[in-house]
Simulated scan of single mutants.
Amino acid sequence: MTVIELLAATAGNAIADAPTRLDPIELFADADIVVQLVIAGLLIASIWVWAIIIGFTLRMRNLRRSSSTFEDEFWSNEDVDPLLDKRRRKDSPSARVAAAGINEFRRSHKAGIRDADAARARVAQMMDGQVAHESDVLASRLNFLATVGSVAPFVGLFGTVWGIMNSFFQIGLQQNSSLAVVAPGIAEALFATAVGLFAAIPAVIAYNRLSGTVNAFEARLARFADRVHAQVSRDMERV
């Protein structure tokens, strides 16, 4: 066998043994330690993102259900005191909004209502403040999604830059600029960017979607507060 034939056979064996598709686990295992840390951190962030998405979706479903139940009972019962106990206020944002307005009305009535307009304004302020508080509590749970959506691509890019720098270092170390030397390191480096996008894209989509859900729920609470305020105003006219 000639030297040329030997080289051709070796090249053929190398091509036959070469992987036919990308293996993320192998890319992670062969990557530099810094790139591995970046990828591991992004994967943890991605898991956390999905946990928030699932948990928040289930929580909003429960809040809408409990608020609907409370509002139906609130408008169908003349005696609302049993509906405003601690357990109901804990389970339902609508109960907390109604309790804020009714408690303010009762404090004003106990002290003697001298200025009905001022009393109505205080009731409205208490309920508006409670609506804003409920919205802020829900929205604060989405801050991590916004953070991951904006930061994860840059963290992945940092891993990519580091991996490419390491590839160029290997070129200088081995005095060989062939694609076989450079390609594995670049592939591992680009994998970090891919993982960054894998974490960021769901986070951005979920943040926009769930923020809209929070805004819609806040508007619903505001409408309920307006109806309660109207009822309280009618009660003040009868005092």
Rank of each mutant, 00 (worst) to 15 (best):
M1T: 12
L7T: 15
A8T: 15
T10K: 08
T10R: 14
I15A: 11
I15M: 11
D17I: 11
R21G: 14
R21F: 11
F28E: 02
D30Q: 14
D30E: 12
D30A: 12
A31N: 00
A31M: 03
A31F: 00
V34Y: 05
V35G: 03
Q36E: 00
L37M: 05
A40I: 10
A40Y: 07
A40R: 05
G41V: 04
L43Y: 04
I47A: 07
V49A: 00
A51S: 13
A51F: 06
I52L: 01
I52H: 01
I53D: 04
G55L: 15
F56E: 11
T57S: 10
R61T: 01
N62P: 01
L63Q: 15
L63H: 14
R64Y: 13
R65Q: 15
S66R: 12
S66A: 08
S68C: 07
T69Q: 12
E71I: 13
E71M: 14
D72R: 14
F74M: 13
N77P: 07
E78N: 02
D79K: 10
D79F: 08
D81S: 02
D81V: 05
L84G: 00
R87S: 10
R88T: 14
R88A: 09
R88H: 14
R89H: 11
R96W: 04
V97R: 07
A100I: 08
E104L: 07
K110W: 01
G112A: 09
D115H: 14
D117N: 13
A119V: 04
A119P: 03
Q125Y: 06
H133Y: 10
D136E: 15
L138M: 15
S140Q: 10
L142W: 02
L145K: 06
A146C: 13
T147H: 07
S150A: 11
S150Q: 10
V151Q: 09
A152N: 08
F154Y: 15
V155G: 10
F158E: 00
F158K: 09
G159D: 03
T160A: 09
W162M: 13
G163H: 12
G163I: 02
I164F: 08
I164Q: 03
N166H: 13
N166D: 14
S167R: 15
F168Q: 02
F169R: 09
N176V: 09
A180Q: 07
V181Y: 01
A183Y: 06
G185V: 04
E188T: 03
A192D: 02
T193W: 10
A194V: 06
L197R: 02
I201C: 02
A203Y: 01
V204C: 03
V204K: 03
I205V: 15
Y207V: 11
Y207M: 11
Y207G: 03
N208F: 02
N208E: 05
L210P: 08
L210K: 08
V214L: 05
F217T: 13
F217S: 06
E218D: 06
E218L: 06
L221P: 09
A225G: 13
D226T: 15
R227Y: 04
V228K: 14
S233A: 11
R234A: 12
D235S: 14
M236L: 12
E237I: 01
V239L: 10
